[in-house]
Design a protein around this nucleic acid. Structure first.
Lengths: 332, 332
DNA sequence: ATGAAAGCGCTAACAT
DNA sequence: ATGTTAGCGCTTTCAT
């Protein structure tokens, strides 16, 4: 590999002048600059990040520790958002996939320390509280938060997502919505139930007894245990005037399950009963027939926000809640 | 950050001895070692990767350039496989997501050069030929290959995948299979057609006129254009004795589409007609009712193989074809 | 506008 | 078994 010293030798100038040119310092004679740039290009000079890190004591590295995230499809967008933001700000993101346990956690920490990472983003698979051991470098929690509120966190605004979706549902004239919610243990479930109930209440609709826990566990590949095959037939067996006119599902893959159960029962989605959901998990959402109307979770934007917060840490820890977007297809 | 010098000062020993302890060089007195290790732990010493890189002229960094891969769900497994293998071998993988074009490609190259990456893995979204500009560092192509054969490549063995699937189909007694293949422009399509036709021929079945191109384009989120809604009704309108008894789909999301079309036509999958496919794309494959029998693409193993090849480059470029695994569910 | 010198933290090479 | 010296490639500091 060629060095600045080599360029200086060829350009018959000093090391420092070469350094200035490489670092775009304007205080260099235009002609000298041109000559140096030509030589650098010719010999294929590439600055050594290691030497820079060492001398400047700045690594420009931000760690991204993904707790099982890299296994989960939706969270690629978290990674992409963070990567893109890092790139724009001239930072190098370093990705670590850990499996919950402390052993891999510690290995990741050691690597991050060795690279003198300036900050770490810790991302979880689903919106949840986490209690992490204290960290010596700035940390941003992504899709999770410190229940004691001591850390900067970026999470989806599940209350807003549910409220927005409920408004869309009611705007379209549905009056007998049922919400097939996530597992109660999941933070999002509580926030969404409130968002839905609040909007309903404001519109003179009582959701009491219309919110069910339909997603029981969380499994590999994000395929949890659903109870749609028991619950949906029950709900749909009511007389037409009591029967739900729309099934709001806590996640797209539950909606997919619901589609199958409904089809089994000879109900046609979008005709006999509407379906709406949360995630906009592609390709499922657009491949279902009819296409699934669903709230898109702001994962890409969350990834970006986390990276920006990691690069310029806010003065005091705060939690940012990012809104989701309603994606309209024909199931609603 | 503390340094080895600081440890040496406290331990009243030399820098080099500390270096030996940190690097697990056995030629150190056990007592000295213990003392140094205690001090290191106490002051929270972490070696500087930058200094190591610089002095040893070894970066231990392997680049992973993902051409739109990080957008695509299935290819997370490529990344996980590579990451895990890198980890085991003490290497740090550096992930770059590029968008096909040369501008981001060049930025990634510059970063990799700056970090003095020892090798690069170049991964494509689907099995395809690629012609890349020559690279100064060892390169491994993942899920793609150099048509001139000049580069090391890791690809799925699409011929084997199709042959294995076809054997499973015929073993189960199906005699009127139809193959809804991928777009002809896709390398996998040709290999699979041959695999299926060869196995059929060996079993006295002629696939002529039974292989269709049912996946037309390749789009965002891996949702291409399907022609199942035209083709399947046509195929299924034949008299029962001429009608396909199994539809083999080129990918799981096409299979999902086929499920919907069949349901529309009042055919029940697994009862009136079987379905099989390629990908094992979760959660779709296990969420479909009945569950989809499908050939799992060996992405995780491919990622691993690519990383191992990147770390220990083979003497001469070769193409490794990795076999897939039949995942049995009840659609077949 | 340019340059000289020092040194970031570590390990290779060579003593002792 | 331990220590000394030098230097990796760069940027900081301080001259000129």
């Amino acid at each position: 590999m060629t060095t600045q010293r080599e360029i200086a030798r060829r350009a018959k100038t000093s090391l420092k002048t070469v350094s200035r040119v490489i670092n775009r310092d304007p205080l260099v004679n235009a002609e000298t600059r041109a000559r140096i740039e030509a030589i650098a290009a010719e010999i294929g000079y590439a600055p050594s990040q290691a030497a820079r890190m060492m001398r400047s004591q700045k690594s420009n590295v931000i760690g991204f520790v993904a707790d099982r995230v890299a296994t989960s499809a939706s969270s690629i967008d978290l990674i992409r958002g963070a990567q893109d933001a890092a790139w724009e700000r001239g930072k190098q993101m370093m990705l670590f996939n850990i499996e919950g346990g402390t052993p891999s956690q510690q290995l990741a920490d050691a690597q991050l320390a060795a690279f003198r990472a300036e900050a770490v983003i810790y991302a979880a698979v689903y919106h949840q509280p986490v209690e992490l051991p204290p960290s010596s470098i700035p940390r941003v929690l992504l899709n999770c938060f410190d229940p004691r509120g001591g850390e900067h966190a970026i999470v989806p605004d599940d209350y807003q997502l549910a409220a927005t979706l409920m408004e869309a549902v009611l705007d379209r004239g549905y009056r007998r919505p049922v919400f097939l919610n996530l597992n109660r243990a999941i933070v999002a479930a509580g926030l969404r139930a409130r968002g839905i109930a609040d909007v309903a209440g404001r519109r003179g609709l009582d959701m009491t007894g219309r919110i069910y826990e339909a997603v029981v566990g969380q499994e590999r590949y994000g395929v949890p245990q659903f109870i749609a095959d028991k619950l949906v037939p029950e709900l749909m067996s009511a007389v037409p005037d009591d029967r739900p006119d729309v099934l709001i599902c806590g996640q797209d893959i539950l909606a997919m399950d619901v589609y199958f159960v409904l089809s089994e029962l000879r109900f046609r989605v979008g005709k006999h009963v509407a379906v709406a959901s949360f995630d906009n998990r592609e390709p499922i959402a657009s491949l279902l027939k009819p296409g699934l109307s669903t709230m898109e979770l702001p994962y890409y934007e969350m990834g970006r926000a986390a990276m920006l917060a990691a690069i310029d840490p806010p003065a005091r820890p705060k939690t940012s809640r990012l809104p989701g977007k309603f994606i309209e297809r024909s199931s609603l």
